[in-house]
Design a protein around this nucleic acid. Sequence first.
DNA 1: CCGGATTTGTACGTATGTATT
DNA 2: GAATACATACGTACAAATCCG
Lengths: 134, 134
Amino acid sequence: MIDPRRDRALYRQLADLLRQQISEGELAPGAPLPSETTLAQTHGLARPAVRQAIALLRAEGLVTTSRGYGTRVREQVERKPLELPTGSSAVARMPSDAERIEHDLDDGVPVVEVQFADGSTAVYPGDRVRLTRP
Amino acid sequence: MIDPRRDRALYRQLADLLRQQISEGELAPGAPLPSETTLAQTHGLARPAVRQAIALLRAEGLVTTSRGYGTRVREQVERKPLELPTGSSAVARMPSDAERIEHDLDDGVPVVEVQFADGSTAVYPGDRVRLTRP
DNA sequence: CCGGATTTGTACGTATGTATT
DNA sequence: GAATACATACGTACAAATCCG
């Protein structure tokens, strides 16, 4: 229940609610969230507050939003094992705007940048790879 | 220059401008961005549009915002080498709300979750570690 | 294919609260 | 205490994408 007297922003309270429903499976992967208008009405909020809540979940990689379509719980894609070669290293970071477009990455999805022993680098979508060391 | 006739949202155009100034060093690490009010006036936008632009940059990990203080270009912290042990693997993802608070992570900073050979896992701040394989 | 309904995106204005300097 | 700066929240309006009959 969203309570204005609590010392937590209303949109954060709504995000907490939705996050809980997702983690408990009440909103399963692929399932649509109620529309922004519906969420606003059922929780007594204005639409901007609802949008802020959903923006939080998007940044966490929990949901995906498509214009004119709606917001859905993100489905986990399979991660390909990627062996980290001897003498190489890897860092995780958020993609640049260009990288997000190039790799068709959703909001809230980091990239993995591998630097090989020869100094060259490669960038991989963070939700599709798992670095391994056999 | 921000141009309403262009087919790109005004707040995205402003984000592009600021992103460029950051990448070119005109806004160096640690440097403060103009205040939201100033940016709004100088570019002829309303403050909500300016806030959207800055929110984009925050999500990309380019800037940090502190209430009552302002927004500054993020300074890169040193990354500690972390050897990926034999038989382990690692994934990159965005932190949960709790993890962000626990590790005191800025917006736009992913985490690295290592799964060890015995099945146990550990989570590291994505901006402070570099996975290595000697 | 078209049109209408639904849904999210963009943008403005306003007001008030709270943290930092 | 005052000034500055960001955070939260409401309301409104129109644009644009998608879906469905």
